[in-house]
Design a protein around this nucleic acid. Structure first.
Lengths: 183, 183
DNA sequence: TCCATTTTTTACCATAGGGTAAAAATTATG
DNA sequence: CATAATTTTTACCCTATGGTAAAAAATGGA
Protein backbone atom coordinates (compact mmCIF):
# COMPACT_ATOMS: atom_id res chain seq x y z
CA UNK A 1 0.00 0.00 0.00
CA UNK A 2 1.31 3.40 -0.92
CA UNK A 3 0.63 6.30 1.34
CA UNK A 4 3.00 8.90 0.06
CA UNK A 5 5.47 9.61 -2.72
CA UNK A 6 8.31 8.91 -0.28
CA UNK A 7 7.76 5.22 0.34
CA UNK A 8 7.61 3.92 3.88
CA UNK A 9 9.29 0.81 5.08
CA UNK A 10 6.96 -0.86 7.51
CA UNK A 11 9.45 -3.64 8.25
CA UNK A 12 12.08 -1.13 9.33
CA UNK A 13 9.55 0.61 11.48
CA UNK A 14 8.44 -2.62 13.09
CA UNK A 15 12.08 -3.47 13.77
CA UNK A 16 12.61 -0.23 15.66
CA UNK A 17 9.30 -0.66 17.44
CA UNK A 18 10.17 -4.16 18.61
CA UNK A 19 13.62 -3.06 19.81
CA UNK A 20 12.18 -0.22 21.86
CA UNK A 21 9.19 -2.11 23.20
CA UNK A 22 8.92 -4.63 25.99
CA UNK A 23 7.99 -8.24 25.31
CA UNK A 24 5.21 -9.51 27.54
CA UNK A 25 3.72 -12.97 27.84
CA UNK A 26 0.25 -13.29 29.29
CA UNK A 27 -1.87 -16.35 30.07
CA UNK A 28 -5.43 -16.75 28.87
CA UNK A 29 -8.20 -14.61 30.38
CA UNK A 30 -6.03 -11.82 31.75
CA UNK A 31 -7.13 -8.21 31.64
CA UNK A 32 -4.51 -5.94 30.12
CA UNK A 33 -6.73 -2.92 30.67
CA UNK A 34 -9.65 -2.28 32.96
CA UNK A 35 -12.37 0.34 32.71
CA UNK A 36 -11.71 3.22 35.06
CA UNK A 37 -7.95 2.95 34.54
CA UNK A 38 -5.83 4.84 32.07
CA UNK A 39 -4.53 2.82 29.17
CA UNK A 40 -0.75 3.16 29.50
CA UNK A 41 0.32 0.96 26.62
CA UNK A 42 0.19 0.53 22.94
CA UNK A 43 0.43 -3.17 22.15
CA UNK A 44 1.59 -5.04 19.11
CA UNK A 45 0.28 -8.61 19.13
CA UNK A 46 2.75 -11.30 18.17
CA UNK A 47 0.64 -14.26 19.21
CA UNK A 48 -2.85 -14.69 20.59
CA UNK A 49 -6.15 -12.86 20.47
CA UNK A 50 -7.19 -9.84 22.46
CA UNK A 51 -10.78 -8.84 23.09
CA UNK A 52 -11.76 -5.19 23.45
CA UNK A 53 -15.06 -4.92 25.33
CA UNK A 54 -17.28 -2.83 27.59
CA UNK A 55 -20.41 -3.10 29.66
CA UNK A 56 -23.39 -1.42 28.04
CA UNK A 57 -26.20 0.60 29.63
CA UNK A 58 -27.96 -2.62 30.59
CA UNK A 59 -24.84 -4.06 32.20
CA UNK A 60 -24.15 -6.55 29.43
CA UNK A 61 -20.66 -7.47 28.32
CA UNK A 62 -20.30 -6.30 24.72
CA UNK A 63 -17.37 -7.18 22.49
CA UNK A 64 -16.37 -4.05 20.62
CA UNK A 65 -13.78 -5.87 18.57
CA UNK A 66 -11.20 -8.62 18.38
CA UNK A 67 -7.55 -8.08 17.57
CA UNK A 68 -5.41 -10.87 16.16
CA UNK A 69 -1.75 -11.54 15.49
CA UNK A 70 0.30 -8.80 13.80
CA UNK A 71 -1.90 -5.92 14.73
CA UNK A 72 -1.80 -3.04 17.13
CA UNK A 73 -4.25 -2.51 19.94
CA UNK A 74 -4.81 0.22 22.49
CA UNK A 75 -7.67 2.28 23.87
CA UNK A 76 -6.86 5.27 21.68
CA UNK A 77 -8.62 8.00 23.59
CA UNK A 78 -7.32 6.83 26.93
CA UNK A 79 -3.80 6.20 25.65
CA UNK A 80 -3.34 9.47 23.78
CA UNK A 81 -5.23 11.77 26.12
CA UNK A 82 -4.60 9.93 29.39
CA UNK A 83 -8.29 9.77 30.14
CA UNK A 84 -10.10 7.03 32.06
CA UNK A 85 -10.85 4.10 29.83
CA UNK A 86 -14.40 2.89 29.57
CA UNK A 87 -13.24 -0.30 27.90
CA UNK A 88 -11.53 -3.50 28.96
CA UNK A 89 -8.91 -5.43 27.04
CA UNK A 90 -8.45 -9.12 27.82
CA UNK A 91 -6.54 -12.07 26.43
CA UNK A 92 -8.59 -14.90 24.96
CA UNK A 93 -5.56 -17.15 24.55
CA UNK A 94 -2.01 -17.33 25.78
CA UNK A 95 -0.72 -14.13 24.30
CA UNK A 96 2.60 -12.50 23.45
CA UNK A 97 2.59 -8.74 22.99
CA UNK A 98 5.16 -5.99 22.61
CA UNK A 99 4.20 -2.88 24.50
CA UNK A 100 5.33 0.73 24.62
CA UNK A 101 4.22 3.67 26.71
CA UNK A 102 3.11 7.00 25.26
CA UNK A 103 6.57 8.36 26.12
CA UNK A 104 8.08 5.38 24.31
CA UNK A 105 5.90 6.22 21.35
CA UNK A 106 7.28 9.77 21.26
CA UNK A 107 10.79 8.40 21.54
CA UNK A 108 10.06 6.09 18.63
CA UNK A 109 8.73 9.07 16.77
CA UNK A 110 11.98 10.99 17.21
CA UNK A 111 14.23 7.99 16.49
CA UNK A 112 12.27 7.03 13.45
CA UNK A 113 10.74 10.06 11.75
CA UNK A 114 8.40 7.96 9.64
CA UNK A 115 6.51 6.92 12.76
CA UNK A 116 3.78 9.50 12.37
CA UNK A 117 3.11 8.37 8.83
CA UNK A 118 3.08 4.70 9.75
CA UNK A 119 0.79 5.51 12.61
CA UNK A 120 -1.42 7.40 10.18
CA UNK A 121 -1.61 4.31 8.03
CA UNK A 122 -2.59 2.20 11.00
CA UNK A 123 -5.29 4.68 11.97
CA UNK A 124 -6.68 4.70 8.46
CA UNK A 125 -6.76 0.91 8.52
CA UNK A 126 -8.70 0.98 11.79
CA UNK A 127 -11.07 3.51 10.29
CA UNK A 128 -11.82 1.49 7.19
CA UNK A 129 -12.39 -1.61 9.27
CA UNK A 130 -14.68 0.22 11.64
CA UNK A 131 -16.50 1.76 8.68
CA UNK A 132 -17.18 -1.73 7.36
CA UNK A 133 -18.54 -2.74 10.72
CA UNK A 134 -20.92 0.22 10.68
CA UNK A 135 -22.10 -0.82 7.23
CA UNK A 136 -22.66 -4.33 8.55
CA UNK A 137 -24.68 -3.23 11.54
CA UNK A 138 -26.59 -0.56 9.68
CA UNK A 139 -28.34 -2.64 7.06
CA UNK A 140 -27.23 -6.24 6.88
CA UNK A 141 -29.10 -8.96 8.72
CA UNK A 142 -27.48 -11.12 11.37
CA UNK A 143 -26.91 -14.24 9.23
CA UNK A 144 -25.03 -12.09 6.70
CA UNK A 145 -22.94 -10.45 9.41
CA UNK A 146 -22.12 -13.86 10.79
CA UNK A 147 -20.99 -15.34 7.51
CA UNK A 148 -18.99 -12.21 6.68
CA UNK A 149 -17.14 -12.62 9.96
CA UNK A 150 -16.41 -16.30 9.38
CA UNK A 151 -15.19 -15.55 5.90
CA UNK A 152 -12.82 -12.88 7.18
CA UNK A 153 -11.58 -14.88 10.16
CA UNK A 154 -12.12 -18.57 9.39
CA UNK A 155 -10.36 -19.65 12.57
CA UNK A 156 -12.40 -17.47 14.91
CA UNK A 157 -14.85 -20.27 15.77
CA UNK A 158 -12.04 -22.42 17.10
CA UNK A 159 -10.52 -19.62 19.11
CA UNK A 160 -13.30 -17.45 20.49
CA UNK A 161 -16.40 -18.29 22.56
CA UNK A 162 -19.68 -17.93 20.68
CA UNK A 163 -21.03 -15.59 23.33
CA UNK A 164 -18.29 -13.08 22.53
CA UNK A 165 -18.93 -13.44 18.81
CA UNK A 166 -22.65 -12.89 19.31
CA UNK A 167 -22.20 -9.59 21.13
CA UNK A 168 -19.66 -8.52 18.52
CA UNK A 169 -22.32 -9.14 15.87
CA UNK A 170 -24.88 -7.16 17.85
CA UNK A 171 -27.14 -10.11 18.66
CA UNK A 172 -27.77 -12.39 21.65
CA UNK A 173 -26.09 -15.72 22.04
CA UNK A 174 -29.44 -17.45 21.56
CA UNK A 175 -29.97 -15.74 18.22
CA UNK A 176 -26.51 -16.73 17.08
CA UNK A 177 -27.23 -20.31 18.04
CA UNK A 178 -30.44 -20.24 16.01
CA UNK A 179 -28.61 -18.78 13.02
CA UNK A 180 -25.93 -21.45 13.20
CA UNK A 181 -28.50 -24.22 13.23
CA UNK A 182 -30.10 -23.02 10.01
CA UNK A 183 -26.99 -23.69 7.92
CA UNK B 1 -6.85 18.60 23.52
CA UNK B 2 -3.27 17.59 24.05
CA UNK B 3 -1.74 15.09 21.77
CA UNK B 4 1.92 15.42 22.50
CA UNK B 5 4.40 17.11 24.82
CA UNK B 6 5.22 19.58 22.04
CA UNK B 7 1.91 21.36 21.72
CA UNK B 8 0.28 21.75 18.36
CA UNK B 9 -1.35 24.88 17.16
CA UNK B 10 -4.44 23.90 15.25
CA UNK B 11 -5.24 27.51 14.37
CA UNK B 12 -1.86 27.97 12.70
CA UNK B 13 -2.35 24.74 10.82
CA UNK B 14 -5.78 25.74 9.65
CA UNK B 15 -4.36 29.06 8.51
CA UNK B 16 -1.82 27.34 6.30
CA UNK B 17 -4.43 24.88 5.10
CA UNK B 18 -6.81 27.64 4.07
CA UNK B 19 -4.07 29.58 2.28
CA UNK B 20 -3.05 26.54 0.24
CA UNK B 21 -6.53 25.27 -0.46
CA UNK B 22 -9.11 26.40 -2.96
CA UNK B 23 -12.37 27.96 -1.87
CA UNK B 24 -15.38 26.41 -3.54
CA UNK B 25 -19.04 27.36 -3.34
CA UNK B 26 -21.63 24.76 -4.21
CA UNK B 27 -25.41 24.93 -4.39
CA UNK B 28 -27.69 22.47 -2.65
CA UNK B 29 -27.93 18.85 -3.87
CA UNK B 30 -24.64 18.75 -5.77
CA UNK B 31 -22.46 15.66 -5.79
CA UNK B 32 -18.87 16.43 -4.88
CA UNK B 33 -17.92 12.77 -5.30
CA UNK B 34 -19.54 9.92 -7.16
CA UNK B 35 -19.09 6.20 -6.69
CA UNK B 36 -16.80 4.76 -9.34
CA UNK B 37 -14.67 7.90 -9.38
CA UNK B 38 -11.52 8.58 -7.42
CA UNK B 39 -11.86 11.06 -4.61
CA UNK B 40 -9.35 13.78 -5.54
CA UNK B 41 -10.00 16.19 -2.71
CA UNK B 42 -9.84 16.61 0.99
CA UNK B 43 -12.47 19.16 2.01
CA UNK B 44 -12.77 21.43 4.96
CA UNK B 45 -16.34 22.62 5.42
CA UNK B 46 -16.81 26.28 6.20
CA UNK B 47 -20.55 26.38 5.74
CA UNK B 48 -23.21 23.82 4.96
CA UNK B 49 -23.76 20.10 5.45
CA UNK B 50 -22.32 17.28 3.40
CA UNK B 51 -23.79 13.80 3.25
CA UNK B 52 -21.58 10.76 2.76
CA UNK B 53 -23.66 7.87 1.40
CA UNK B 54 -23.74 4.68 -0.64
CA UNK B 55 -26.16 2.21 -2.18
CA UNK B 56 -26.36 -1.03 -0.26
CA UNK B 57 -26.72 -4.60 -1.55
CA UNK B 58 -30.46 -4.06 -1.92
CA UNK B 59 -29.96 -0.84 -3.89
CA UNK B 60 -31.06 1.44 -1.09
CA UNK B 61 -29.51 4.83 -0.47
CA UNK B 62 -27.79 4.65 2.93
CA UNK B 63 -26.37 7.67 4.73
CA UNK B 64 -23.02 6.65 6.17
CA UNK B 65 -22.55 9.94 7.92
CA UNK B 66 -23.14 13.67 7.92
CA UNK B 67 -20.39 16.28 8.14
CA UNK B 68 -21.07 19.76 9.41
CA UNK B 69 -19.28 23.09 9.55
CA UNK B 70 -15.65 23.13 10.69
CA UNK B 71 -14.86 19.56 9.90
CA UNK B 72 -12.92 17.68 7.28
CA UNK B 73 -14.42 15.23 4.86
CA UNK B 74 -13.02 12.94 2.21
CA UNK B 75 -13.34 9.30 1.14
CA UNK B 76 -10.17 8.27 2.93
CA UNK B 77 -9.39 5.06 1.11
CA UNK B 78 -10.05 6.56 -2.29
CA UNK B 79 -8.23 9.81 -1.53
CA UNK B 80 -5.10 8.29 -0.02
CA UNK B 81 -4.79 5.20 -2.20
CA UNK B 82 -6.36 6.60 -5.38
CA UNK B 83 -8.85 3.76 -5.54
CA UNK B 84 -12.37 3.88 -6.93
CA UNK B 85 -14.76 5.27 -4.39
CA UNK B 86 -17.83 3.27 -3.49
CA UNK B 87 -19.36 6.27 -1.78
CA UNK B 88 -20.99 9.49 -2.83
CA UNK B 89 -20.63 12.89 -1.20
CA UNK B 90 -23.36 15.46 -1.74
CA UNK B 91 -24.30 18.88 -0.44
CA UNK B 92 -27.53 19.15 1.54
CA UNK B 93 -27.41 22.93 1.66
CA UNK B 94 -25.59 25.73 -0.08
CA UNK B 95 -22.07 24.87 0.93
CA UNK B 96 -18.66 26.52 1.12
CA UNK B 97 -15.66 24.21 1.28
CA UNK B 98 -11.90 24.56 1.05
CA UNK B 99 -10.34 21.74 -0.91
CA UNK B 100 -6.86 20.41 -1.49
CA UNK B 101 -5.55 17.57 -3.59
CA UNK B 102 -3.38 14.75 -2.26
CA UNK B 103 -0.38 16.53 -3.73
CA UNK B 104 -1.49 19.70 -1.97
CA UNK B 105 -1.68 17.70 1.20
CA UNK B 106 1.95 16.60 0.79
CA UNK B 107 2.94 20.16 0.11
CA UNK B 108 1.14 21.25 3.26
CA UNK B 109 2.97 18.51 5.08
CA UNK B 110 6.35 19.84 3.98
CA UNK B 111 5.48 23.49 4.57
CA UNK B 112 4.02 22.78 7.94
CA UNK B 113 5.74 19.86 9.63
CA UNK B 114 3.02 19.45 12.24
CA UNK B 115 0.58 18.39 9.53
CA UNK B 116 1.01 14.67 10.16
CA UNK B 117 0.27 15.13 13.82
CA UNK B 118 -2.75 17.30 13.19
CA UNK B 119 -3.92 14.79 10.68
CA UNK B 120 -3.42 12.08 13.29
CA UNK B 121 -5.63 14.00 15.65
CA UNK B 122 -8.33 14.32 13.03
CA UNK B 123 -8.16 10.59 12.31
CA UNK B 124 -8.43 9.76 15.98
CA UNK B 125 -11.47 12.02 16.21
CA UNK B 126 -13.08 10.21 13.29
CA UNK B 127 -12.30 6.91 14.95
CA UNK B 128 -13.83 7.81 18.27
CA UNK B 129 -16.92 9.12 16.55
CA UNK B 130 -17.25 6.01 14.43
CA UNK B 131 -16.68 3.87 17.52
CA UNK B 132 -19.62 5.61 19.17
CA UNK B 133 -21.75 4.88 16.17
CA UNK B 134 -20.86 1.20 16.34
CA UNK B 135 -21.83 1.19 20.01
CA UNK B 136 -25.11 2.82 19.08
CA UNK B 137 -25.95 0.34 16.37
CA UNK B 138 -24.72 -2.68 18.28
CA UNK B 139 -26.98 -2.58 21.30
CA UNK B 140 -29.09 0.53 21.58
CA UNK B 141 -32.64 0.62 20.28
CA UNK B 142 -33.78 2.98 17.57
CA UNK B 143 -35.53 5.54 19.85
CA UNK B 144 -32.32 5.86 21.87
CA UNK B 145 -30.20 6.28 18.76
CA UNK B 146 -32.60 8.94 17.52
CA UNK B 147 -32.55 10.98 20.71
CA UNK B 148 -28.77 10.68 20.95
CA UNK B 149 -28.50 12.13 17.48
CA UNK B 150 -30.85 15.01 18.22
CA UNK B 151 -28.98 15.77 21.41
CA UNK B 152 -25.68 15.88 19.56
CA UNK B 153 -26.97 17.88 16.59
CA UNK B 154 -30.04 19.79 17.74
CA UNK B 155 -30.34 21.59 14.41
CA UNK B 156 -30.26 18.49 12.24
CA UNK B 157 -34.05 18.22 12.01
CA UNK B 158 -34.24 21.66 10.45
CA UNK B 159 -31.46 20.96 8.00
CA UNK B 160 -31.66 17.33 6.89
CA UNK B 161 -34.50 15.27 5.42
CA UNK B 162 -35.90 12.61 7.74
CA UNK B 163 -35.30 9.90 5.17
CA UNK B 164 -31.56 10.57 5.32
CA UNK B 165 -31.64 10.58 9.09
CA UNK B 166 -33.52 7.28 9.15
CA UNK B 167 -30.96 5.46 7.03
CA UNK B 168 -28.17 6.98 9.11
CA UNK B 169 -29.83 5.50 12.18
CA UNK B 170 -30.15 2.13 10.47
CA UNK B 171 -33.94 2.12 10.27
CA UNK B 172 -36.59 2.78 7.62
CA UNK B 173 -38.24 6.13 7.24
CA UNK B 174 -41.54 4.60 8.39
CA UNK B 175 -39.98 3.39 11.61
CA UNK B 176 -38.50 6.80 12.27
CA UNK B 177 -41.88 8.36 11.70
CA UNK B 178 -43.44 5.96 14.22
CA UNK B 179 -40.72 6.70 16.76
CA UNK B 180 -41.21 10.44 16.38
CA UNK B 181 -44.93 10.14 16.96
CA UNK B 182 -44.45 8.38 20.29
CA UNK B 183 -42.75 11.34 21.93
C1' DT C 1 -51.28 30.82 -7.00
C1' DC C 2 -51.77 26.31 -8.70
C1' DC C 3 -49.99 21.99 -10.01
C1' DA C 4 -46.39 18.53 -9.82
C1' DT C 5 -43.04 16.47 -7.17
C1' DT C 6 -41.07 15.04 -3.09
C1' DT C 7 -41.26 14.00 1.67
C1' DT C 8 -43.56 12.35 5.65
C1' DT C 9 -47.09 9.91 7.96
C1' DT C 10 -50.30 6.24 8.72
C1' DA C 11 -51.96 1.52 8.55
C1' DC C 12 -51.67 -3.29 8.08
C1' DC C 13 -49.41 -7.59 8.33
C1' DA C 14 -44.99 -10.32 8.40
C1' DT C 15 -40.70 -11.57 10.55
C1' DA C 16 -36.17 -11.20 12.76
C1' DG C 17 -34.42 -11.09 16.85
C1' DG C 18 -34.96 -10.35 22.20
C1' DG C 19 -36.15 -12.16 27.01
C1' DT C 20 -36.64 -15.80 30.08
C1' DA C 21 -35.92 -20.39 31.38
C1' DA C 22 -34.23 -24.79 31.26
C1' DA C 23 -31.81 -28.70 29.11
C1' DA C 24 -27.71 -30.38 26.90
C1' DA C 25 -23.00 -30.21 25.89
C1' DT C 26 -18.50 -28.87 26.74
C1' DT C 27 -14.64 -27.54 29.56
C1' DA C 28 -12.19 -26.99 33.83
C1' DT C 29 -10.85 -28.72 38.40
C1' DG C 30 -10.10 -31.52 42.62
C1' DC D 1 -12.21 -39.88 36.65
C1' DA D 2 -16.03 -37.45 38.78
C1' DT D 3 -18.00 -33.36 39.80
C1' DA D 4 -18.60 -28.52 39.23
C1' DA D 5 -18.63 -24.62 36.36
C1' DT D 6 -19.20 -22.72 32.06
C1' DT D 7 -20.87 -22.50 27.47
C1' DT D 8 -24.15 -23.60 23.99
C1' DT D 9 -28.53 -25.06 22.44
C1' DT D 10 -33.46 -25.38 22.47
C1' DA D 11 -38.11 -23.77 23.26
C1' DC D 12 -41.54 -20.59 24.24
C1' DC D 13 -43.73 -16.21 23.62
C1' DC D 14 -43.24 -11.20 22.79
C1' DT D 15 -41.87 -6.86 20.65
C1' DA D 16 -39.46 -3.82 17.55
C1' DT D 17 -38.81 -3.04 13.10
C1' DG D 18 -39.37 -4.13 7.99
C1' DG D 19 -42.27 -4.30 3.66
C1' DT D 20 -45.91 -2.70 0.99
C1' DA D 21 -49.28 0.57 -0.05
C1' DA D 22 -51.70 4.61 0.18
C1' DA D 23 -52.97 9.08 2.20
C1' DA D 24 -51.48 13.50 3.84
C1' DA D 25 -48.36 17.20 4.09
C1' DA D 26 -44.70 19.98 2.54
C1' DT D 27 -41.89 21.85 -1.00
C1' DG D 28 -40.66 23.67 -5.47
C1' DG D 29 -41.51 25.48 -10.08
C1' DA D 30 -44.09 27.51 -13.79
Amino acid sequence: MEYNDSSINFEDFLGVFLSISKREEHPKNIQLLQAGRTCRKLYFIEKGILRFYYYNDAGKDITHWFRFENSFITELDSFLNKTESSYYIETLEETVVYSISLEGFYKLSSLFPETEKIWNLALVQFLLELGEKVKDLQFRDAPTRYSNLIEKHPDILQRVALGHIASYLGITQQSLSRIRKQK
